[in-house]
Amino acid sequence: MPVTSIVKDPEALSLTVHAEFPVKVARLWDAYLDARQLEKFWGPAEYPATFTRHDAAAGGRSNYHMTSPEGEEFHGYWEWNEVVEHKFFEVTDGFAHPDGTPNTDLPVNRMVFSFDPTPEGTKLTITAAFDSAEDMEQVVAMGMIDGTRSAMSQIEQVLIDLRNYSQTFATEAELVSDTQVRVVRLVRGTRQQVWDAHHDAALVKRWQYGPDGWSMTKCDLASGIGESYLLWWAPEDGGQGFGFSGKILERVEGHYESSTEQLEGGEEILGSGVPGSVNQQTFTGTTGGTLVTTLITYRDKAARDAMLATGMADGMEASYARLESIL
C-alpha cells in the first residue's frame, strides 16, 4: 500500500498523509497536474471524479465533482495559492454547489502537497489544515480518512498503467457530460511558448490557417476580459469563407482563458446546426511539454453532437501538429 501513515493532530488542527511511490518526482507530479490522470484516483474508488477545470497555477482554480454509485454528484473546488514545480503546491480545498460556487455551509481547509525524492522513488506528504477543531471533526465524520486511503490505493496502479501517458501527443476528444467535450493535446513546447502561440496574431495565422487550400485572412484577437475577437478563414480560390467570433469571459495570464465562441457564416461548409459554445482553455506545463486542455460547453446534447460531427478533433490535431513544427 502506498500510504505509510495518516496522522491526526488535534492541537495543530491538521491531518497529514504520508505515502511513498516507486516513481520519480516528475512522474508523480505530472499525475496530479494532468486532470485526465488525477480524476482516476482523486477520491474514493466508489466515487469517481470528473474535473471540469484544473488550472494548476497560482491564482488558478480547479472544479470537480465525484459521482456516487447511485449517480448523485458531490462538488468541490481548489483555489491554487502557490506552486513550486516538482517541490510542492498549496490549494484551498472546499465544497461547492453544482454551479461551482463555494458551499459556505461546509468546512474549508488548506492543503499542501509536498513531493520529496527518495532512493526508491518519491515520498508524498499531504497536509490539510483546518480553521477549527469542529471543521476537522466534521470532514473526518464525512469519511475523509477512509476516502484518502481509498484514493491513495489507486495511484500506484495509475502510475503503472499510464507510465507513458504524459507522452501521448495526439489530440483527444472526451465526452465529459451530455453538454461538454474535453479536448486535450500535449504540445512540445514551454507553457509560455504555447500560450504566446495562442495570443500572438502573427503566430496564430501560421498554425491555425485551416485545411490545405485555405488561409486565415482575419485574426483580431482580444487582449482582455470583456473584449471581442474574430477569426476568419477563406479558400485560396476565392470561394465563401467562414469565421468564429466571441468574447473573453475570464483570463489568468499565461495559464487559463474562458471565452464564448459563435460561428460566423460558413453554414454551407460546416452545416447550419453548428452551435455556439463556452470554451475554457488551460495551459499546464508538464515534463513532456505543455498540456492544452479545452473544455467546451454547448447548450444541449444535440448541439454537442453536431459539433463533433464536423470533425473538430481532426482539425485541431492538424493545427497543433503545425504549431509543434513552428516551436
Rank of each mutant, 00 (worst) to 15 (best):
P2T: 05
V7T: 14
A12W: 11
L13T: 13
S14H: 10
T16Q: 13
T16D: 08
H18Q: 12
E20G: 13
P22S: 11
D30Y: 03
A31R: 00
L33Q: 00
L33M: 03
Q37T: 06
K40T: 02
A45Y: 04
E46L: 08
Y47D: 04
T52D: 05
R53G: 03
H54C: 08
D55W: 05
A58K: 03
S62R: 00
Y64D: 02
M66V: 14
M66R: 07
S68T: 13
S68P: 05
E70P: 03
E79Q: 11
V83D: 01
H86V: 09
F89C: 06
F95P: 05
H97I: 14
D99F: 13
G100N: 12
T101H: 15
T104D: 14
D105F: 11
F113W: 15
S114T: 12
S114P: 06
T118Y: 07
E120A: 13
E120M: 15
K123E: 12
T125E: 09
I126N: 03
T127R: 08
F130G: 00
D131E: 13
E137P: 01
R149A: 02
S150R: 07
V158M: 05
I160Q: 11
L162P: 00
N164H: 12
T168I: 14
F169K: 13
E172L: 12
A173Y: 04
L175H: 13
R182S: 10
R182G: 02
V184K: 02
R185Y: 03
L186G: 00
T190W: 01
W195F: 10
D196E: 13
H198R: 09
H198P: 01
W207S: 07
P211E: 10
D212F: 08
T217F: 09
K218M: 11
K218F: 05
K218Y: 05
C219A: 14
G224N: 10
E227L: 09
L231T: 05
W232Q: 15
W233E: 03
E236N: 14
Q240S: 12
G241F: 05
S245T: 15
V252W: 04
H255S: 11
H255T: 07
Y256T: 08
S259N: 11
T260P: 00
E268N: 13
L270I: 10
L270A: 10
S272Q: 11
G273W: 06
V274D: 01
P275W: 03
G276N: 04
G276C: 02
V278D: 01
N279I: 11
Q280D: 10
T282Y: 00
T284G: 00
G288Q: 04
G289A: 02
L291C: 01
V292I: 14
I296C: 06
I296E: 01
T297N: 03
T297P: 00
A303Y: 02
A306P: 04
M307H: 08
A313V: 11
A313R: 04
M316N: 01
E317R: 14
S319P: 01
Y320M: 07
Y320K: 06
R322M: 05
S325I: 11
S325V: 08
